[in-house]
Amino acid sequence: MELTQDQLIKLYTLMVRTRKCDELIVNALKSGKAIGFFHSGQGSEAVPIGACTFNLRDDDYLYPHHRGHGIGYMLARGLSPKPFVASHMGRVAQDVEGPTARERGIHGGSGTIGASFVLSAGMGITAKKNGKNQITACFFGDGSANRGTLHEAMNLASVWKLPIVWVCENNLYAQYMPLKDSMAREDIADLASGYNMPGVIVDGQDVLAVHEAVKAAVDRARAGEGPSLVECKTYRYRGHSEGGPDISHYEPRPAKELEEWKKRDPIKLFRENLLQQGVLTDADVERIDKEIEAEAETLEKYADECPIPKPEDPSVLDRLLYAE
């Protein structure tokens, strides 16, 4: 089914919002407002938005990739960005409207890389057992593709024909390690043949190409034909984590490489496409930018007013530790 004009504009808007939320946290870390780690996903917005916005049902399961700390996936699933922004400022989100992450199949993320595969296998078991044609979409990076968990989970998913879509956001670097020096083959999609499932490579800068490739994999999983692997070739503009070096092994990443990838920026490519087709006008683009800029300002002010947690009552921690 062709996407409507409104749907195309939604994809564009979501990518711009994803970029803006990411920039917001990067800037808040610089100004000292945000705390802890942030692993920016700037440059790869087409993957979460293209894959998730129109291919998943509300009751499907999704394991987000850690780039951008999952903001693209949350926005694509229709979640409010308030908890994302507030939590990066160390604050407790208030007055969050709309569905919760769990109501849209996002059950959390992990601090260790590669647990995504085996936890997603479990969500795939749930999807299959429920018998409602739900699917599980698992997003991972090129770095985690070197974890042994990939093998155990992909093999099990194929043997049991679990309804899982494995989507790799291959941005060519695992922290400082370039993929070319860490994987015996160039294409992660090649792994699929070892698990007797389809593996396709897609231009991860082209939001419509990602949408189409993931759609085919989702349709296949929903039809009970088992898992598939989609590899999205993309890039990250910033270093592994904010405040850390932006290097390949121990030397700066090549400036030329960044320059070349920025020529194929996913937002820029899609904007040009939509302008050319007449789906958007220059005035529309300007309006969208302004609206999202205003949303970001509101979000930052909102986060400033959210409270910092004060666990004065230690039973709060008990309730976090164990369910009744």
Partner: peptide, 27 residues
């Protein structure tokens, strides 16, 4: 379907139990 023989894969046995428990099962 309920007494599930897995491959020799302890990591996915444990991880799948976690993933399906968080989505409503009691493995």
């Amino acid at each position: 379907e309920r007494i599930m023989d897995t491959p020799l894969s302890e990591t996915v046995i444990a991880g799948a139990a976690v993933g399906s428990a968080m989505t409503g099962y009691r493995p």
